[in-house]
Simulated scan of single mutants.
Amino acid sequence: MAAWHDNAVQQPHSDVRSRSRVRLFALSVLLLICIPLLSGCLRVQASLGVSPDDRVSGQIVAATVPADDNDKGPELIPPDSLTQKVRVQAYKQDGFVGSQAFFSDLTFGEVQQLGAMSSQTGSSIQLDFRRNGDVVVLEGKADLKSVPDGSDVQFSVAFPARVNTTNGTRDADSIVTWKLPPGEVSTLRAETRYADPSTRGFAGWAGIVAGVTLGVALVVGAMAYFSRHPRR
Rank of each mutant, 00 (worst) to 15 (best):
K141E: 11
T121E: 11
G95W: 10
Q154I: 13
A142V: 06
S146M: 13
T166H: 01
Q113P: 00
R131N: 10
N164E: 14
T107K: 06
E139V: 12
A101N: 05
G98N: 09
T166Y: 03
V163E: 04
N164M: 13
Q154T: 15
T165W: 02
S151F: 04
Q126W: 00
F155G: 03
E139Q: 14
N164F: 06
F108C: 12
R162D: 14
V97T: 15
S151H: 05
S146Y: 07
R131M: 07
F129Y: 11
N164R: 15
S124P: 04
R130A: 12
V147M: 07
D149Q: 15
F103I: 05
F96P: 06
T107D: 08
G115V: 02
V147D: 04
K141C: 08
S99L: 05
G115Y: 00
M117T: 08
F103W: 05
S118H: 08
T107H: 04
F159Y: 15
P160N: 10
D152G: 00
V135I: 15
T165I: 06
S151K: 06
S119V: 03
L138M: 15
A101V: 04
S99E: 01
A116H: 11
P148G: 12
R131S: 14
S123Y: 05
L106Y: 05
F159G: 00
A116I: 06
G98V: 11
S151R: 06
L106P: 07
